[in-house]
């Protein structure tokens, strides 16, 4: 769970620079972590079961069609956003203090 932000940001950045080959390679390594994370969200009631299904479906569709836009959409706005709310970055915690 600690590395999730880094993994999301790595994938998002690779998509931003259109290095899709690298995205495919890296995704293979991160897919299990991402799935575990989605399960964690559903298991802890952070997202509903229907949302879990939708998220998974979109991830699958994105990977199957090599729709990197959709993949980034899910990662950045679907998953990383939630992660940032659950585990705020250290700098923003310090600012709040």
């Amino acid at each position: 769970m600690d590395n999730m932000r880094e993994e999301f940001e790595t994938l998002i950045e690779l998509i931003n620079v259109k290095n899709y080959k690298a995205v495919d390679e890296v995704l293979k390594d991160y897919l299990k972590d991402i799935s575990n994370y989605i399960m964690f969200l559903a298991g802890n009631g952070i997202i509903a079961i229907e949302e879990l299904n939708t998220l998974s479906e979109h991830m699958t569709t994105a990977i199957k069609n090599k729709d990197y836009f959709l993949l980034k959409d899910v990662l950045q706005y679907g998953l990383l956003n939630v992660y940032d709310q659950l585990f705020p970055r250290e700098e923003s915690v310090k600012e709040e203090e």
Partner: peptide
Amino acid sequence: ERQYMLQSIYGEDDY
């Protein structure tokens, strides 16, 4: 059956 999103599903206004 290939399909491609043309707009954001999760980002919406943020995107």
